[in-house]
Deep mutational scan, measured.
Amino acid sequence: LDITFHVDGKNIHVHGASEEVVRIIEELIKNNARAEEIKETLERLLR
């Protein structure tokens, strides 16, 4: 699975993920999660 995301100002662009995963990533970023935390969360979800 190949998910890429980047933050452009306040806009979060996520590619290669389901809508549910996109929402989770957006929440994590809004809550100022570190990249490592986001990665760990995604790995748990995608197991």
Rank of each mutant, 00 (worst) to 15 (best):
I24R: 05
I12K: 00
F5V: 06
K30D: 04
A35N: 05
H15Q: 12
V21F: 08
V7P: 02
I24P: 00
S18L: 05
I29Q: 02
R44M: 12
R44N: 10
G9P: 02
S18R: 04
V14R: 01
D2V: 11
I38R: 00
E27H: 10
N31E: 08
N11D: 15
K30S: 10
H13D: 09
L42D: 00
T41F: 05
R34Y: 06
I38C: 03
K39G: 07
K10L: 15
E36W: 07
E20H: 09
N11S: 12
I29C: 03
L46S: 03
A33T: 10
V14E: 01
I12N: 02
L45A: 03
I3W: 15
H15V: 13
I24K: 08
A35L: 15
H13E: 11
L46N: 04
E19K: 12
T41V: 11
E20M: 08
L45D: 01
R44S: 09
K39P: 00
E37Y: 12
A35P: 12
L45G: 00
E40F: 08
E26Y: 15
E36G: 06
D8H: 08
N32M: 07
I38S: 00
V21Q: 04
R34F: 06
I24L: 09
G9Y: 04
H6Y: 14
V14I: 10
E43G: 07
A35F: 15
I12H: 04
S18N: 10
A17M: 05
V22I: 14
K10N: 13
R44D: 09
E20Q: 10
R44L: 13
E27P: 00
V7T: 03
E19V: 13
V22P: 00
F5Q: 01
N11C: 05
T41H: 08
E37K: 08
V7L: 08
T4P: 01
E40M: 10
E40A: 12
I3A: 04
E43L: 11
E40P: 01
G16N: 14
I24C: 02
E20V: 09
V7S: 04
A33F: 08
I12W: 07
R44F: 13
K30Y: 09
E27K: 11
L46D: 03
K30V: 08
K39S: 13
E37N: 06
R44A: 13
V21A: 07
K10D: 12
E37D: 12
A17T: 04
G9L: 03
D8Y: 06
N32I: 03
L45V: 05
V21E: 02
A35E: 10
N32G: 15
I25K: 00
A33M: 08
K30Q: 10
H6E: 10
I29K: 02
L42W: 02
S18W: 04
E43P: 01
I29L: 09
H15N: 08
A17L: 10
N32F: 08
N31T: 09
K39V: 15
E26P: 00
L46M: 12
A35G: 09
R47D: 15
A35Y: 15
L28R: 01
V14S: 03
L42A: 04
I12G: 01
F5T: 01
E27N: 12
I25V: 09
D2Y: 10
G16F: 06
A33Q: 04
V7M: 05
E27Q: 12
V22D: 00
K10R: 09
D2S: 13
I29D: 00
V21P: 00
S18V: 04
T4L: 08
I25A: 01
R34T: 15
I38H: 01
K10Q: 15
H6W: 14
L1I: 14
V14A: 09
L46E: 04
L45F: 06
N11R: 11
E26G: 09
A17N: 01
I24S: 02
L45R: 00
S18Q: 05
V22N: 03
R34E: 10
R44Q: 13
L1D: 10
E40D: 12
V21M: 08
A33E: 03
H13V: 13
E19N: 11
R34I: 07
